[in-house]
Simulated scan of single mutants.
Amino acid sequence: MDFAKLLFPDFSLILCGWLVCRYTALNRTVWIQVEALVYYFLFPVLLFQSIVRSPLDVGATSSLIVAGVLTGLAGIGLAYYLPRLPLLRRHIDRRDHAASAQVAFRFNSFIGLALAERLAGPQGLQLIAVLIGFCVPLFNIGAVWPMARDSGSHFGAALARNPLIIGTAAGLSANLLGLHIPGWLEPTVSRIGATSIALGLMAAGAGMQFGSLANGKFLAASVLTIKHLLLPVIALAAALLLRLDAAQTTILLAFSALPTASSCYVLAAKMGYNGPYVAALVTLSTVAAGFSLPFALGVLGTLRP
C-alpha cells in the first residue's frame, strides 16, 4: 500500500491553509472564526457520523476493544509522565506539555476509516468503528484533562462543555440504541463531515508556526516518539496478549500508527493554549505516519498471529 498517497491529501490541505493565511487577505482574523466553526459544529457532526454509521458488535470485538483501550491508556500514561522524566523535566514547558500531550495518543479517524477499508474491506470498517466508538471518548477526556487542570478550570465542566466529547457520546449512545441517520439526511451529514476535515486541516496550517518548535523540540520529539514508535509496539503486545485474530491485529496496528487528530490544534487553540505549536506537531505527525504505518503493518505485522 502506498501510504504517501494516503497521507498526501491531509498534508496538502495543511500546506494550503498555511499559504492562504500568509499570502492572501484571508489572514488570522478569518481563520479564528473558522476554528470556532470547526470546533463547535463541524467536528462534532463528523464524530457522530463516524460512530453511528456502522453497528458496534461489542460481543464479537470485546478483545479488540480492550486492546485498543489498553493501548490508548498506555499512550496517555506515557504522555502525562514526560515532565517527570529527569532528563526532560527542565526542557519541557508546563503549558506546552498540557496542550501537546494529546498529540501522543489521539488519532485521525478519517484516515483510519479510509485505511481500514483498504486493508480489510467492510470488516475493517466495522472494526475501526468499534475502536473509534470506544476510544474517542477516552482520548478526548485524556486530551482535555491536562489543559483543564493547568488552567484551573473545573474538569467536569470542561468535559460537559466540550463539543467533541458531546458529539462522540451522542454517537456512541445512538449506535448502542440502534439509531441511524435517516437516508434523506445522510448526504447532508456526510458533506458536513467532509467539510470539517478540510477546514480543520487548513485551520491547522493557518495557525502553524514552526519557529515555536525551537523552544519545545524535546517535548515535540517525545510526544511523536510515543505516538509513532512506542504505541505500535504496545499495540502488538496487546494483540498477542489478548490473542486477536489476524484481521483485528491488522486494524489495531494501523489504528496505533495513525497520524494524530487534526482537531488537536483546534482544541488547544480554543482552550487558550499554544495553538501554533500544536499545529506544527499535527503536521509533523502527518509526515511521521508515512513511516510509522509501514513499520506497524510491515515490520510488526509479520509478528502477528
Rank of each mutant, 00 (worst) to 15 (best):
L241V: 01
R243V: 10
S222E: 13
V278K: 01
L244N: 06
N274K: 03
A289P: 08
G216M: 10
L219W: 10
T283A: 10
L281T: 04
D245W: 15
Y277V: 02
A254M: 13
G207R: 05
F218G: 00
P276W: 12
F291P: 02
Y273V: 07
G298H: 11
A289V: 09
N215K: 06
L253S: 12
A246E: 05
G275P: 01
L213T: 02
V223E: 00
T260L: 02
A238H: 08
A268S: 01
L258T: 02
F295N: 09
V299F: 08
S212R: 08
S212V: 12
F295E: 03
M271F: 10
G298Q: 15
A206S: 10
V233T: 12
A269D: 13
A247G: 04
V233M: 13
T250L: 14
A296D: 15
H228K: 14
A214G: 06
P276Y: 14
L252C: 09
H228P: 03
L253K: 06
A235Q: 11
G298K: 07
T283Q: 02
Y273P: 02
S256N: 04
P232A: 12
S292V: 02
D245E: 10
T250R: 13
A280E: 12
Q248Y: 14
G272L: 04
Q248C: 07
T249I: 03
T260E: 08
P259D: 10
K270N: 14
N274I: 06
R243K: 11
V287E: 02
L293M: 15
F291I: 11
K227W: 01
I226K: 06
I234K: 06
S263W: 04
L240A: 14
L219G: 05
A239Q: 13
S222H: 11
G207C: 08
R243W: 13
I234F: 06
Y273G: 00
K217G: 02
S222W: 04
Y277F: 15
A296I: 11
L258N: 03
L231K: 03
A238N: 07
S292F: 05
M271W: 10
A206M: 07
L293T: 15
N274E: 09
A206K: 05
L224N: 00
S212E: 15
G290L: 13
L242C: 09
V278Q: 07
A239N: 03
F291V: 07
L240T: 15
S222R: 04
G207K: 00
K217S: 07
A269C: 05
A238F: 02
Y273K: 12
Y277C: 01
A254L: 15
L242M: 13
T225W: 02
T249L: 01
G290I: 12
S262M: 02
Y273H: 12
S256I: 09
T283W: 05
M208Q: 02
R243N: 14
L258E: 05
A288R: 00
G207I: 01
A261K: 00
S285R: 01
Q248K: 08
A254D: 09
